[in-house]
C-alpha cells in the first residue's frame, strides 16, 4: 500500500547523519511507492538535499536558518508542523536522538496523535503499521499499532539499513520558514571531554562496570582498549559506574546512554542489567569477564572468562600483544 512518509533528518558537521540515511532507508520501504519526504534544518541544510535524495528522499523540505543549529522544541516543532501540513504523511520517522526524544512526543501531542519511542523494527503488515520496541529495560519487547494518524515513530540508531546510494538522484526542494520565537534560551553549552574515537563509531568497545570496585579499575580497562589500538577501540561504562562518578556520562552504554553496535564488545566486571544490555546487545560479539558465573552478561556473551578482572585483564593485554 503506497503511503507518504516524512523523515525528520539531522545535519551534523556539515553532513546528514548516518541515522538520517537509515531512516530514509526505512522510509522508502514503508512508502512502497508513496512519496518519501525529508526535513533538514540548520546551516547548510539545503546543500545536503542531494545527500538526502541519494539516500532515498523524493522531496526535501529545508531551511538554512542557523537558529535551527541548536535544537529547541519551539523552533523545530513549528518547522516540522509546516512540513507536515505540506506533506500530509501517514508516518513520521525521527531518530531516537536528543532531537527525537523531545520532538517525537511534542509533535505527537501537538497533532493529537501517538508516538512510539525508540523502535527497533517498523513494518507495514497486512493488518497495518506495526512498531516494535524494547520495554522493561530490555527484558521484554512490545509491538504497537496506531489508532491515530500520522503515526510518529522514533527509531533507534543502527536498527535500520540505508539503501544503496542513488548517486546523482534529484528531487524537489521546498523552503521551510525561518525559525520564529522560542520560549527556551540556551545560555551555555559544554562539550564532554571525549577526544579521539567516538564510542558509537568504534569497531571494538571495552566497558567497565561497578564490579571494578574503584575508579582506578578503569585504568586497566583503558589499557586493554589501548592494546587493540586507539584507532580501533573505545572505552565505555555501565550506568552504575557513571552514577558513582567513576567515568564520564558521555561514555555510558545503555538504555539512557549510548547504544553501541561494535564488532566486539568486551564487558569487564559488568553484571549485564537489562538496561545495560539495551545499549550493547547489537554488538556482533560480546565477551564477558566477570567473577560471577551466574551474572546475566554471560547469557548474551559468546566468549567468557570467569575470574577477577584484576588478574585476568593484565594477562589478556599481554596475550593480545603476543599474538602473531
Amino acid at each position: 500500500m503506497a503511503q507518504d512518509i516524512l523523515v525528520v533528518g539531522e545535519v551534523a558537521g556539515g553532513a546528514v547523519t548516518m541515522t538520517t540515511t537509515e531512516l530514509l532507508g526505512l522510509a522508502t520501504q514503508l512508502a512502497d511507492g508513496g512519496k518519501t519526504n525529508a526535513v533538514l534544518l540548520g546551516s547548510g541544510a539545503t546543500g545536503q538535499a542531494g545527500a538526502a535524495f541519494a539516500a532515498g528522499a523524493d522531496r526535501v523540505l529545508a531551511s538554512d536558518d542557523a537558529a535551527y543549529d541548536q535544537y529547541r522544541s519551539d523552533h523545530w516543532l513549528a518547522a516540522v508542523e509546516a512540513a507536515l501540513d505540506q506533506a500530509s504523511p501517514a508516518v513520521v520517522l525521527i531518530a531516537q536522538s536528543m532531537v527525537g526524544r523531545d520532538l517525537g512526543p511534542r509533535l505527537a501531542f501537538r497533532r493529537g496523535t501517538a508516538a512510539a519511542m525508540d523502535c527497533v523494527r517498523v513494518e507495514q503488515s497486512a493488518e497495518g503499521l506495526r512498531a516494535t520496541r524494547s520495554a522493561y529495560g530490555g527484558n521484554a519487547q512490545a509491538t504497537y499499532s496506531f489508532k491515530t494518524s500520522p503515526a510518529v515513530i522514533t527509531v533507534r540508531a543502527k536498527s535500520q539499513d540505508p539503501i544503496a546510494e542513488r548517486a546523482g538522484a534529484t528531487g524537489e526542494t521546498v523552503a521551510l520558514p525561518a525559525a520564529g520565537a522560542a520560549r527556551t534560551e540556551i545560555t551555555g553549552r559544554e562539550a564532554a571531554v571525549s577526544t579521539g574515537l567516538q564510542i558509537q563509531d568504534a569497531p571494538i568497545v571495552v566497558s567497565g562496570g561497578r564490579g571494578l570496585g574503584a575508579p582506578e579499575g578503569f585504568r586497566v580497562v583503558e589499557e586493554l582498549a589501548a592494546a587493540f589500538g586507539t584507532d580501533k577501540a573505545a572505552v565505555g561504562s555501565s550506568r552504575a559506574a557513571c552514577d558513582l562518578g567513576w567515568y564520564p556520562p558521555s561514555q555510558q552504554v545503555g538504555l539512557t546512554g549510548k547504544v553501541v553496535t561494535p564488532d566486539l564488545y568486551i564487558a569487564v566486571a559488568i553484571s549485564g542489567a537489562s538496561q545495560h544490555m539495551a545499549g550493547c546487545s547489537g554488538a556482533k560479539t560480546i565477551v564477558a569477564i566477570n567473577r560471577d558465573r551466574e551474572a546475566n552478561i554471560f547469557k548474551a556473551a559468546r566468549f567468557g572468562i570467569v575470574g577477577d578482572y584484576k588478574a585476568v585483564v593484565p594477562e589478556l593485554i599481554k596475550a593480545i600483544k603476543e599474538l602473531p
Partner: peptide
C-alpha cells in the same frame, strides 16, 4: 492512541 498488540520476551542469546 497506541495499542499494545503483543508483549513478548526476546529470544535468549547464544551459548557462551
Amino acid at each position: 492512541r497506541l495499542k499494545l498488540e503483543k508483549l513478548f520476551q526476546p529470544p535468549a542469546g547464544g551459548d557462551v
